[in-house]
Design a protein around this nucleic acid. Structure first.
Lengths: 249, 249
DNA sequence: ATAAAGGATAACGTAACGTGAGAGTCAATG
DNA sequence: CATTGACTCTCACGTTACGTTATCCTTTAT
């Protein structure tokens, strides 16, 4: 199916001029043009447009977008994954801004004190996303020491623990295409249960189940767990529930 | 305290030129100027700047921002509330884009079909935010069902629960300037304990303490909790530990 | 066939800064 | 106390990503 400019514009919510512009600069040239010069956009063109808009949403200059997507080594799938991460980053920033507003309201009421720094949390545009891109892409596993706050552990212990956790998360993420009650999934979830009990506290099976439910009920948690894999939180919740039920004497 | 341009720029993550520009167009004129013409920004100026940046984040033209904030009938508090809603909208859009990416990945693999319309969900900029403003302002409380994943709860129950949670988080965030063993802090943490037990599972005091330790040990959690206030995760961890110890038989 | 609706190119306008250029200011240092 | 280096200022032109007419050509609906 082919679409004319206005249709496309209406579909994606951009202006006709924008499409013209993208054609002008060679960013998105429709495959077909009628004899009269009408632009006809194919489904393929729409896919490209989608890519362009993803990049644009992240504030990338059109010139750079053009370079990237016209590079023969450009990997669409990789780009999508990257985009997802970056969009999630942006969402985190929005979350911060929202909580900054909450704080500001309290601050105006005189309920709390607010440092100047706090007033601008979430606004920090100083570090551009493309710097981060590289770091994300080539994995910068340096652990930010400031983030490890469990005072009564040595750095090594903390790092080891963090690594152990990540390993289990990954194991679970790999399982999540299947059902949460397979042998493998349950083995992995047992590891998680053991890990928690070893490192934090003795969880009852009921408490363990409850923890799983929190993973999906509190979107703050869901979001972060799903960083390790879409739908992981839900999967873990299910698996944890099954595990608890099965092992209940 | 007064700050010079570069300090302000560094604090909020914008350029010096931007501050100059805002001065030029009369959007943010620092209250004081030194004899040599140096700009000195007061705390009040920073508050205004915060407002400006909130509006800007929502894509409002600077001209319009100027009109709004210089209007004597401009209600800062109302604006903050409005901003919050609009930012949450934006976040919803980001969520949609993220799920669009997920779908696109499946689509590329040939796992699912995707209509052209679906390819652009979350991208719809056609309706400008100011249209929505009106809708938001007079309350359109439609709940996004897709975000509430706890299947076995009604929408109302879910919303109520989410609200309850946020309330407790806020209460704790307000306490965090003090010590975690004050009466107020412990009362708030008891609310948290009761809430968890009511909604998820029976947590033993040990398990509760362990949960608290997870808050700071797992940076995925830390990050999100700290969204509600810097250092909140650590504070909750401490408070939860104290609560458990105090109430142990 | 005749208008209305939509498409095209062309070209200038605009918003929100970026990017020097050239010059003054200020605290610290030799 | 002169100098240096880090900041600051004010022009002023450049840039990006379109918006906005203006003028003309196609296509579709009646």
């Amino acid at each position: 199916m082919v679409m004319k400019v206005k249709e496309v514009a209406a579909l994606v919510g951009i202006s006709v001029r924008t499409l013209h512009h993208y054609d002008e600069i060679g960013l998105l040239t429709p495959k077909e043009k009628s004899e009269a010069g009408y632009r006809f956009y194919s489904t393929e063109d729409l896919d490209t447009l989608q890519q362009v808009l993803f990049f644009r949403e992240l504030g990338m200059p059109l010139k750079q977008i053009k370079e990237i997507i016209s590079d023969p080594s450009f990997d669409r799938d990789e780009a999508l994954i990257l985009h997802k991460k970056m969009l999630m980053d942006k969402r985190d920033r929005l979350d911060k801004m929202i909580s900054t507003i909450d704080k500001t309201v309290s601050y105006k009421k005189g309920e709390i004190v607010m440092t100047d720094k706090e007033k601008f949390e979430g606004f920090d545009f100083s570090k551009n996303p493309y710097e981060q891109e590289a770091r994300e892409r080539w994995g910068n596993d340096a652990v930010d020491a400031s983030k490890m706050k469990l005072g009564n552990m040595s750095k090594e212990e903390q790092e080891k623990m963090s690594h152990e956790m990540t390993t289990i998360y990954k194991k679970l993420a790999d399982q999540r295409t299947g059902s949460p009650d397979t042998k493998e999934a349950q083995a992995a979830i047992k590891e998680w249960y053991d890990f928690l009990n070893k490192n934090f506290s003795t969880y009852s099976l009921e408490a363990f189940k409850g923890l799983g439910q929190m993973y999906v009920a509190d979107e703050r948690f869901t979001k972060n767990i799903d960083n390790m894999g879409e739908g992981l939180a839900q999967f873990m919740c299910d698996a944890m529930g099954i595990y608890a039920d099965n092992n209940k004497s």
